[in-house]
C-alpha cells in the first residue's frame, strides 16, 4: 500500500503517536459510527415495536412510528457525515475494492481460517490494520456492500414509506407498497443479526477492548507479542 499511495508520505506525521499507536479512525468517522450505532439500535427496537404491537406494548404505535421516523432522518443525515468524509478524504482507499481476484480470495480464505482457528491459538490476524487499508478482505466487502448498498436501500425504502403519497409513482415502479415494505423488513432482518455479530466481532481484537478503544480514541494500540 505504501508504495501505491504517494500522498501518504506527507501525512506521516499523524500516522503514529509517540506510543507507537496508529491513528485509524479520524474524528468524523468516530462521531458517525457512534451516532449511527445509537440510531440503529433505536430504529431496530422501534421497528420491532411497530411490527409486533400484538406481542408487547412498550411504546404506543403512534410514538413508535414517530420516533422511528425522526431517528431515521437523523441517521440519514449522519450517513452524509460518513459519505462526505470519505469522499473528500484520501482515506477513501479504505473502501476501495481489491481488484485482483486471486489476491482477494487468497487473503479472504486466510482471514476465514484465522477467525475459525488461528485466533484461538493466539495467532495474530493476517491483516495488519493500516490507516489506508483498515479492513481485512472479509470486512471490506461486507462494509462496502452494507454502507453503499444495503444502508441506502433501507433509507430509500424507508423514505418512501414515510410519505407514500409523495413517492406514489416511485413505489408503483418498484411493484407496490408491499414490495417496498418487504424489502425494508428483509434489510431489517439482515441488520438484526448483523448488529449482534458486529458487536461480538468487535470484541475479537487482541484484547476484547482493543477495537472498542480504537473506535473511541481513533488509535490502534501496537500489537504486543
Amino acid at each position: 500500500m505504501a508504495t501505491k499511495n504517494p500522498e501518504q508520505v506527507q501525512l506521516k506525521s499523524w500516522k503514529k503517536t509517540s506510543d507507537g499507536e496508529l491513528y485509524i479512525n479520524p474524528l468524523p468517522v468516530r462521531i458517525w459510527h457512534w451516532l449511527h450505532a445509537m440510531g440503529f439500535v433505536v430504529l431496530i427496537l422501534t421497528g420491532i415495536q411497530i411490527r409486533y404491537t400484538n406481542l408487547f406494548n412498550v411504546l404506543t404505535f403512534e410514538t413508535a412510528v414517530k420516533t422511528h421516523n425522526w431517528v431515521a432522518f437523523a441517521v440519514i443525515a449522519n450517513y452524509f457525515i460518513w459519505l462526505g468524509f470519505y469522499l473528500f478524504s484520501d482515506r477513501i482507499t479504505v473502501y476501495h475494492p481489491e481488484l485482483n481476484p486471486r489476491k482477494f480470495f487468497d487473503k479472504a480464505f486466510e482471514q476465514a481460517r484465522y477467525y475459525s482457528y488461528g485466533i484461538f491459538k493466539g495467532e495474530r490476524s493476517p491483516h495488519k490494520v493500516q490507516p489506508y487499508d483498515k479492513f481485512n478482505p472479509m470486512q471490506s466487502i461486507t462494509y462496502q456492500i452494507v454502507m453503499l448498498l444495503v444502508v441506502p436501500v433501507q433509507f430509500i425504502t424507508g423514505i418512501m414509506m414515510w410519505d407514500i403519497k409523495r413517492f406514489e409513482s416511485w413505489i408503483a415502479m418498484f411493484g407496490g407498497i408491499q414490495v417496498i415494505d418487504t424489502v425494508h423488513v428483509l434489510v431489517f432482518i439482515f441488520f438484526l443479526s448483523f448488529t449482534m455479530i458486529h458487536a461480538y466481532m468487535g470484541a475479537l481484537g487482541q484484547k476484547p477492548s482493543t477495537h472498542f478503544k480504537e473506535m473511541f480514541t481513533g488509535f490502534e494500540e501496537e500489537y504486543e507479542e
Binding site: 469522499l87 476501495h96 475494492p97 481476484p101 482477494f104 480470495f105 480464505f109 456492500i145 453503499l148 448498498l149
Partner: peptide, 27 residues
Amino acid sequence: KNVGLFFASPFIALGYVIALPFVGFYM
C-alpha cells in the same frame, strides 16, 4: 478514480460474495 472505485466497490464486493462459495468449493 478514487470516487469511482468507492462507488463501484459494493458491486465488486457483491461479485466476490457470489463467487466466494464457488471459489471455496474449488479450494
